[in-house]
């Protein structure tokens, strides 16, 4: 899997690169539109992470060029301008997703994986980890073909973890992903803990060989046994 990050903020670029490298992606970077244009002309990428505010122009420009040339790379816009207008413009121009800065790495990871999945497993949209399988079309998770009967939130939690398996998932990243911004002011740890306790119980009774482990003070990690 090949990913291109177009971002002019050095530290931001390095963070994304480090994180995605750990996921065993091939990561290339560009710091300007011109540089990105050259790379896109030569290679094909599975996913492009595109910043909007770049030194030599707007990321929307590049997006338009891609669509005009019928280049089918997946594009996720990554922008500090979290306005509805930008989001709509980006999606209208054919971006696959829009991620507002600041974001958690786990969230970026989940979005990238979702884009990759949509592009690659046309028709057969399933995730398998150990004896867990998730049918993305049916929104159903099962262990050894026995349905887990998860509610909507539990399903989303599990899906988020599977995108970030063996990675440390920050509890607020999880909260924002599953419950949106609403949860941010609540004493989130206790709340999320009780939500995850139910999911763990269901996984355990069903005999799953994956486990959601708590990492004190920070969050959780999905590990395969």
């Amino acid at each position: 899997m090949k990913i291109l990050i177009v971002e002019d903020e050095q530290d931001m670029l390095q963070n994304m690169k480090d994180f995605l490298l750990k996921e065993n992606f091939v990561v290339e970077t560009a710091e300007s539109i011109a540089e990105a244009r050259n790379k896109i002309g030569v290679y094909t990428y599975d996913c492009i992470l595109l910043d909007i505010n770049l030194k030599d122009g707007s990321g929307f420009q590049l997006l338009e060029e891609l669509k005009r040339k019928n280049i089918e790379d997946g594009v996720i816009i990554v922008s500090a301008r979290n306005s509805l207008d930008d989001r709509l413009e980006g999606l209208n121009l054919g971006a696959d997703d829009y991620l507002a800065k600041p974001f958690h790495m786990a969230e970026l990871n989940a979005r990238v994986k979702a884009v990759l999945r949509r592009r690659q497993f046309n028709g057969n949209n399933k995730i398998k980890i150990g004896n867990l399988s998730i049918d993305l079309d049916e929104h159903e998770a099962s262990i050894d073909d026995n349905p887990l009967n998860l509610n909507r939130k539990e399903y989303e939690i599990l899906l988020f973890f599977t995108s970030n398996q063996n990675r440390l998932v920050n509890k607020s990243a999880l909260a924002e992903h599953v419950w949106g911004d609403h949860i941010d002011q609540a004493d989130s740890f206790e709340f999320i803990y009780s939500q995850i306790k139910n999911l763990r119980k269901k996984l355990k009774t069903a005999g799953a060989d994956i486990e959601i482990k708590a990492v004190y003070g920070i969050g959780y990690k999905l590990i395969t046994q």
């Binding site: 931001m12 994180f19 600041p102 790495m105 920070i218």
Partner: peptide, 16 residues
């Protein structure tokens, strides 16, 4: 926003 995002992301990488 950007420095905050960078700091949080770097710590997320560090803690792993």
């Amino acid at each position: 926003q950007t420095p905050l995002a960078i700091s949080i992301n770097k710590l997320e990488l560090l803690v792993e």
